[in-house]
Design a protein around this nucleic acid. Structure first.
Lengths: 256, 256
DNA sequence: CGAGAGGTTGAGGATCCTCAACAGCCGTGG
DNA sequence: CCACGGCTGTTGAGGATCCTCAACCTCTCG
């Protein structure tokens, strides 16, 4: 949605962006403190009281990644953990011959580095411009040790991720191409709704190749399925996104 | 391996079972307390000190599930959490039309119910005879709240599960049939090794259908791949298991 | 001994992948 | 200003992989 002026308010909390120097910027990114953060109620921070949040805020550093910038690679020393405030990340693993599986897309409010382990278990790229709170991993762990509330919340987030991963295994292992695309769109709609949008229009910052690598397909197959759904008026292809025209039909295809 | 007398000590901590009334029974299942439990060093219990462990022990109840018995179904009220001490569980999700995806096999030391949530997110069956420690979920949560050590350990277990899930997504989304089987065997070997076996022989309590539903294949395809690997002397088919004959070759096929 | 469950193997076909051509968009640079 | 190349996406033709359907085998258990 980088160059769309008429993005509606449905879906992304990044909507309502300010145009600055020809670049799209997130409001959340400009928040100086947690108080005015757009995702404070949906992210792990929500576990903290005002006083704790202040100390937490002091540990964090606001960072911005440009589109296609790599945050880290699988196997890197995990020096930092992140809380996404705006934009979309792709987390992925590579096979030795270059085949890629995108294990998840992270949206605002999502946390990177839940495992708190010494090395990253996957690679992460910014898909569009991403704003995030960065924490030194050591500092973060110390803080967690002093705040069991936060650990409970992290654990909750981790098991939620695990549930999403299990749902995705069903998709990858047991669903046909059309079902995969439909189920993905419905899942994305659900996540966007929880972020506050009405989510009729699903903004998709990722390419067809990204979708393919997430759904276990090729980019051609994704393109064909999207075309087919559009031809049948189940969805409408719009710049950098898809609009759901017949939700009932989509649910019929992607039912879980 | 239910009726094999000559199972070697490689692999399963259940080996060394006592024959009682024609049934194979796990030593761990007979342990009256945590002290003599076979999995106390690999399961979440390892986070606890002796005193804590005693209280923990008091909360638990030893239970045994027969082969094919269902522990719970997806969506059921999560009244209990379990720590597997012996045997194998399958965790799975079903699509409305009956297609099944097995999201994981649980071995001794593994924990069921990490999410601590009110409802189970998947169904669980015993594949062979399973022994487990059962905890009332409410009691368990209270105990966790009083023992942050344990929460840390649970979180570690959850993020480890998440890593396994992500690895499995790569397998499901981006690997060919032969690679899936090879990678599965290697992963299973790794898990068995960590449980103390040398793991040249991989005991497989599950059927070809179970394997297929785990690997995103049909049972026929699994059977064909296994036959092919056996024909090439990469593996040897033994009753209720597979013996790895050419580990190098298997790693070449299933490299990750 | 018969029934049932689990497993193997084959023939044929559907789905999805591969390879290829081409269109649209955008930023760069002549 | 417009031509060009690169990137993304679409569409088609042909082929590989894996699935479906079916037959048959072994083993176990009542």
């Amino acid at each position: 949605m980088a160059d769309l002026n008429d993005v509606d308010a449905t879906g992304s909390p990044c909507s309502g962006e300010a145009r600055v120097l020809g670049q799209t910027r997130c409001r959340a990114a400009q928040a100086a403190s947690c108080d005015s953060c757009g995702v404070k109620d949906v992210s792990v921070c929500s576990a903290l009281e005002a006083v704790e949040l202040e100390a937490f805020n002091a540990l964090s550093e606001k960072v911005i990644f440009r589109s296609k910038e790599t945050l880290f690679l699988q196997g890197d020393d995990a020096r930092a953990v992140y809380n996404v405030t705006c934009g979309t990340l792709r987390l992925y693993k590579l096979l030795p011959d270059g085949r890629r599986q995108i294990v998840g897309f992270l949206l605002p409010g999502d946390f990177v580095g839940l495992s708190l382990s010494e090395r990253y278990g996957f690679s992460a790229d910014a898909i569009d411009q991403v704003s995030a709170c960065r924490f030194d991993r050591g500092d973060f762990i110390d803080f967690v040790d002093r705040n069991p509330h936060l650990l409970r919340r992290l654990h909750q987030a981790a098991t939620h991720e695990l549930t999403l991963a299990q749902d995705h295994m069903v998709l990858l292992g047991r669903r046909a191409a059309e079902e995969k695309v439909a189920a993905f769109l419905l899942a994305m709609r659900g996540r966007l709704r929880r972020l506050g949008g009405s989510a009729v229009t699903i903004p998709l910052a990722m390419t067809r190749q990204d979708l393919a690598d997430h759904l276990g397909l090729t980019l051609e197959t994704v393109s064909r399925v999207v075309s087919k759904l559009a031809r049948e008026k189940t969805i409408l292809v719009v710049p950098d996104g898809l609009r759901i025209m017949d939700a009932g039909r989509l649910e019929q295809i992607g039912a879980s």
